[in-house]
Simulated scan of single mutants.
Amino acid sequence: MSTITIRLNSDEAKTYKEYAKFKNVPLSTLMKKALEEKIEDEIDLRAILAYEERLKNNEVKHISFDDVKKRLEI
């Protein structure tokens, strides 16, 4: 396991520690979860932008719900 140091001013440290206490999780868990969510948001945004670009270039084919059911035989 590795250790990463994050420098916080006193107000930031107080706010983050109080929030971690409120959520009943260690501060390190709170920080890791926040960063993980930020990364997931970035991945989602890139996927949306790529989809919108494909949509703009008419590279997207829509399938109706009925066609999906037929293909899945349900």
Rank of each mutant, 00 (worst) to 15 (best):
A13Y: 15
A13W: 14
K14N: 13
T15F: 13
T15P: 01
Y16R: 14
Y16I: 15
Y16N: 11
K17E: 11
K17L: 10
E18S: 10
E18G: 08
Y19Q: 06
Y19L: 09
A20K: 09
A20T: 02
A20M: 03
K21S: 09
K21D: 10
K21M: 06
K21Q: 10
F22E: 14
F22T: 13
F22V: 11
F22D: 13
F22C: 11
K23W: 07
K23S: 02
K23Y: 06
N24I: 04
N24M: 05
V25P: 02
P26C: 05
P26Q: 06
L27I: 04
L27S: 02
S28Y: 08
S28V: 02
S28E: 08
T29G: 12
L30P: 14
L30K: 03
L30H: 03
K32I: 06
K32Y: 09
K33H: 04
K33W: 00
K33M: 05
K33T: 03
A34D: 08
A34V: 08
L35R: 02
L35M: 09
L35D: 03
E36T: 00
E37H: 12
K38M: 10
K38F: 05
I39T: 11
E40F: 10
E40Y: 07
D41F: 14
D41K: 15
D41N: 15
D41A: 14
E42F: 06
E42S: 10
E42I: 05
E42Y: 03
I43P: 10
D44Q: 14
D44E: 12
L45E: 06
L45T: 09
R46P: 09
I48V: 08
I48T: 09
L49E: 12
A50G: 07
A50C: 13
A50W: 13
Y51G: 06
Y51P: 05
Y51A: 13
E52C: 11
R54H: 14
R54A: 09
K56W: 05
K56T: 02
K56Y: 04
K56S: 03
K56A: 07
K56I: 01
E59D: 07
K61W: 00
K61P: 00
K61E: 00
H62F: 09
I63E: 00
F65G: 02
F65D: 00
D66N: 07
D66M: 01
D66G: 05
D67C: 04
D67V: 01
V68Y: 00
K69I: 06
K69A: 04
K70A: 01
K70S: 05
K70L: 02
R71V: 07
R71L: 07
L72I: 04
E73I: 11
E73L: 12
I74N: 07
I74Q: 08
